[in-house]
Every structure is written in structure tokens, then in C-alpha cells.
Design a protein around this nucleic acid. Sequence first.
DNA 1: CGAAACCTACCGTGCTACCGGTAGGCGCGT
DNA 2: ACGCGCCTACCGGTAGCACGGTAGGTTTCG
Lengths: 192, 192
Amino acid sequence: MARARSEERRAEILRATLEVIAERGYRGATLGAVAERVGLTQQGLLHYFPTKEALLVAVLEDRDRWDTGGGGGEEGAWRLELLGSLVEYNAMRPVIVRTFSALLGESVTEDHPAREFFTRRYTQVRAGMAATLRAEYGDTLPGGLSPERAAVLLVAVMDGLQYQWLLDPEAVDMPGAFGDFLGLLKGPEAPS
Amino acid sequence: MARARSEERRAEILRATLEVIAERGYRGATLGAVAERVGLTQQGLLHYFPTKEALLVAVLEDRDRWDTGGGGGEEGAWRLELLGSLVEYNAMRPVIVRTFSALLGESVTEDHPAREFFTRRYTQVRAGMAATLRAEYGDTLPGGLSPERAAVLLVAVMDGLQYQWLLDPEAVDMPGAFGDFLGLLKGPEAPS
DNA sequence: CGAAACCTACCGTGCTACCGGTAGGCGCGT
DNA sequence: ACGCGCCTACCGGTAGCACGGTAGGTTTCG
């Protein structure tokens, strides 16, 4: 029972950390703020995660499990049609989007603990997307690009849209815009 | 001479600030680090810019002048072909790209002093792009999108590519990828 | 002389992290 | 059955540092 309670606590803490990072970024986040949100003192929090950085990597690993686990096949093999739904899903989870957009932004700075994570993650995701595209369209997409080159753009559009959407949700229809892009990739439809 | 020297100093300071933000982000940047880089004490620095935030807005205004001034017409009317060159130019200025990518990332957090700047800036840039696209292609792009919808994607691709490129410059050919996207926008070429 | 351009000294705050507790539960030997 | 010791889950105190910012000088130049 104590063990279960402990796991539960850790999950609470991770959720709270996610929120706090969404609000202030990693550098702006403080152990005290996270602790307060789960009803602990800062010292109690450090009992579960020995350092601030440990907390961050736990959040990152959590995410990693989540979207390599739910993604279907082994190497992040998203079905192409499902990508649109993913974006729609994200549009309903602004906190998570904010967290990872903030972290991505910070991660390009020096010695940031999330940098390696994101670097590796993006190469994986690009490879996965490229594989999916190749499986679906062969070596040349309808738009004329190779799967690898299209994959870079696909990822770029997803990230870039998130920033515009976070800054001004009213002005940017994220899922719609992503759909537009998918349309471009698929090339000009023959009939109607 | 003192006046000239002063202006010169301020320019030095802004350049140093840009560098420090590129390395540590705004929140991670410290007045001491900026001061050291221009050979001042932290208090000497505060003589020129009374607060840390004043320093940031100066950097932002500087950028604003730069790329509304150099952009050609009034409302950021970039010629479409020049966008490719801009991306190539950026690929040679990693420090600036890093600075603004880091700031963009931070700006989605709460109470960030750059948030309003980015929000306004993006609406402007989108509008400018849309105007350019409309001038060049009319109300429907070859790819089938309206100028406004294409503008969102254009901006998203530029930003998204920057992050991938900053994290792994070897793996991502930023100008090439952007060229690919422009190709998609322009739709399938008729002849060859 | 007077203003601009600094510097030295200092303050208050906030943050991470360590040290040393304490309270309760649980196994274990006798 | 029961007490002993250990483990988990915390909290109070605080060290140690870095940061942003203020106050008040001092040099330097016109």
C-alpha cells in the first residue's frame, strides 16, 4: 500500500511539474512551486526526485514512453491520416503543448539538460515519419519530394504551428492549417 | 565624441546581450554575463539600460527596425523569391537564430516580457506574407490554398526548421528544406 | 563647472541543495 | 506477543550562492 501510494505521488508530482514548466519554462520553474502544487514542502519533493534536473528527465521519459507506446509500431510509425488527429488532440491539450514548446525553445541554449533528448527525439521522429511516408507513397510523394525531405517539413510545420497557435489561439486554426499542409504534400487531387 | 562613444557602447551591449541570450535564453541570461562581455561591471551596464527587461526590449526593437527596414515595402512586403535568400542568410547567422528561437520558446510562458512582441509580430508577418502571396498569385495559390492559409504555413515552416536545424545542423538542410516547401506551395510545375 | 560614464559597496530576495531530525509502519527474532 | 531496529515519508533549518537593483562616490571630458 505504501508502495502504491508512492507511485501515485510520483505521478502527481510529474503532472504538477508539467504544469509549472508550461507556465514558467524549466529555468523559470522552481522546486517550491511544484511542491506547493502537490501539497508538499520543497524538501518533501526532493525526497522523491533528488534534483531539479532529475525531475525534468522524469517528465521527459514519461513523454517518451507515452508517445512511443501509443504510436503504434516500433519506430514511431504513425499512420499518415492519424497525424491530423494527433494535431487535433494537441489542440485540446494546451498545457502539454506549452510545456514541450517551452522546453524545445530552451533546449537550443547551451548545456540545457533537455537538449540531447530533443536532438535524439527529432532524428527518431523524422526517420519514423519518412518510413511511414515511404510505405504509403513509395520513394516519391505526389508532391514530388522524397519521404525524408517531406518528413523534415512535416515536423517543422507541426512545431511552427504550435508556437503561432499558443501565442494567438484565436488567429490560428492549428488543425486546419495542418490539414492544408497535408493536402499540399499529397499533391493536386485528380478528381473531385 | 562622448555621444558617439555612448551610441557605440549601446550597440556593443546589444550585440553582447544577443549572444548571451543565444547561449542561455532570457531567463538564464544575467546582467553580469552581459556586462563582462563588454568589459563593464554589472552596474556600469545598468547605467545604459536601467533594468534587465529594458535590455530585452531594446534588443527586440533593434530587430524590429532591422527587418522592417530591410524588408522592402511598408508592411513587411517580402518578395517571395527573397524568402529563400533570407533563410540562407539565417543559416549563416546561427547566433541570431538561436536568440530568437530561444526567445520565442520562452515567450509562450506566462508573464514573459517578449510575449506581446511576438504575438503582434506574428500577426504582422502573416499579414505581410499573405499580401505578398496575393500580389504574386491572386486569391488562389497554384497549390490551391488562399494566401492567408499559406502564410501561416510559411511562417510555421521557417520557425520549425530553425529548431531542427539548431539542434542538429548536420542532419537538417534548412535552406534546402525551405526550398522544398516553396516548391510545394507553387504547385506542380507545368513544363520541365 | 557640470554632466556623462562609469565603479565600489551594499541590500534583499530567491533558489537549490544538504543535514538532521521525527513519526509511523513493518518485519523479525525470541 | 512484543519490543527492537529499520525503512519510508516527510519537515525545519539553513548553508551557500547568484541575481537584480540602489546609493553614492570618483574620474573624465567638454
